[in-house]
Amino acid sequence: TFEVERIVRKKIVHGNTSYLVKWKNYSSKDNTWETEDDIRTKYGDLVDDFEK
């Protein structure tokens, strides 16, 4: 199971928000862009903290 360590960046393309996710126990080269809906479902607190 993958676990988010932190959110690195945010991008908005054509009105759709995605977050660059750093995965726990993986290197930064393994970071992936994930949709806001996918990340918010399980890691809403991390998204809220990133947006502060």
Rank of each mutant, 00 (worst) to 15 (best):
T32V: 02
T17F: 04
Y26N: 10
K42I: 09
S18A: 08
D30S: 14
G15C: 06
H14M: 12
N16K: 15
D48T: 08
V4L: 10
L46C: 04
E34M: 15
H14K: 13
V4E: 02
R9K: 12
I39M: 15
Y43C: 05
D30P: 07
E5V: 05
H14L: 11
K29H: 09
T17I: 14
D38Y: 15
N31S: 10
R40S: 04
K11V: 07
K24R: 11
D48A: 12
E36R: 05
V4A: 13
K10F: 06
E51G: 03
F50V: 02
W33D: 00
W33P: 00
K24M: 08
I7T: 02
I7K: 00
S27H: 09
K24E: 03
E51V: 04
S27C: 09
F2M: 15
E51Q: 04
Y19R: 00
F2D: 11
K10A: 05
T1H: 13
E36K: 04
V8A: 02
D37A: 14
I39Y: 01
D37R: 11
E34A: 07
E34T: 05
T17M: 05
Y19D: 00
Y26L: 15
S28L: 07
V4T: 01
E51Y: 05
K52A: 11
T17C: 05
R9F: 08
G44D: 05
D49H: 10
G15S: 04
T17K: 06
W33E: 01
T1Q: 13
D49T: 10
E3A: 06
N16P: 00
F50H: 03
E34N: 03
I39P: 09
S27I: 08
T35S: 13
N25E: 09
N31T: 09
D49A: 14
K10R: 08
N31H: 09
V4R: 00
D45W: 14
Y19H: 00
N16C: 14
H14T: 06
R40C: 06
S28C: 15
R6H: 08
I39N: 03
T1A: 12
D38L: 12
E3W: 06
V8K: 03
E51H: 05
D45H: 14
N31Y: 15
N16Y: 11
K42D: 11
L20A: 00
R40D: 03
N31R: 05
W33R: 00
K52C: 08
F2Y: 13
S27Y: 06
K11G: 05
S18P: 02
D49K: 11
F2G: 13
R9C: 15
F2S: 11
N31F: 13
V13D: 08
Y26F: 14
L46F: 07
L46I: 10
K22L: 04
V13C: 14
W33V: 01
K24D: 02
